[in-house]
Simulated scan of single mutants.
Amino acid sequence: MIPEKDQEKIKIPNNERVPEKDPLIRRRGPALDLFRGRRVMHFENGTGFQGGPSRRKGYKLALWSWFASMIDCLILISISSIFMAAFSFLMRTDFGALIGSVTQNQHRVILFLEVFALCAWAYMIVVRSVLGSTVGEWACDLRLGQPQERLRANYILRVAWRSTLILITGLVTLPVLSLILGLDLAGKISGLRLFSLK
């Protein structure tokens, strides 16, 4: 309640009477004086707003999924580079010599690609299981599964199955087919679809 000495300072002209129905507006104060003379809006009956955000589907969703994969790939390459630098430090070798030996020796290239694929598989499963999306999917407003699906006990197994499907097809085949057909094929096969928040 406002003290009587301050109530004298706040004067409301007769033509701008505040409706006495609303208890929030009845209490007059400096902050509520800003809204004096405005219509009181009631939202109980709805506002007539029927539309919502248009969700990305089909080809748009597939393209955004590719963009999210590119972001995740850059993150994985940077993590792999950090691990290679740490490995060269532990082995007391020059980082440039280590990179040169990897590119010259075919067996080391295959080993590096296998380790990279294994790290990508683990990254996709762990981060999606904990957060519901990878960093790239989060940046592109994509989520794997509905919120109620993430609470189920078999969510981690379905994430692992989806990631394994993509890895088995060579990381390219299934996403390219999804892009051509405008469908989330990995989601249809695994039962865990990718959803757009926009």
Rank of each mutant, 00 (worst) to 15 (best):
I166G: 06
D184G: 04
D141L: 13
I2P: 10
I156E: 07
R36T: 14
L171S: 01
F43V: 10
S69V: 04
W161S: 09
S178T: 00
M84C: 09
R193F: 12
V127W: 06
L113R: 02
K9Q: 12
G48H: 07
S80P: 11
A86L: 15
R108G: 06
Q104S: 14
M41G: 09
F195K: 08
R150S: 07
R17F: 09
R150P: 03
V115F: 04
K11G: 10
L90F: 15
Y59R: 04
L165F: 00
L32S: 11
E149V: 01
W66V: 11
D94W: 05
P147F: 04
I110V: 05
V102Y: 02
R108P: 02
Q106A: 10
V176L: 15
T164L: 11
A186Q: 00
W64I: 01
I75P: 02
E4K: 00
S81H: 13
I2G: 01
P30S: 05
P19C: 00
P13W: 11
R55H: 05
S81I: 14
M124I: 08
A117M: 12
D33C: 07
I71F: 01
F112P: 00
G170R: 05
I125V: 15
V172R: 01
F67A: 14
S80Q: 15
G187E: 01
K5N: 08
N14M: 11
S69W: 05
G100M: 09
I189Y: 08
R152M: 04
N15Y: 13
G170Y: 00
I189D: 07
L151C: 02
V159I: 11
N15S: 10
T103Y: 01
V109H: 03
L157Q: 08
R56P: 05
Q50H: 06
I125F: 10
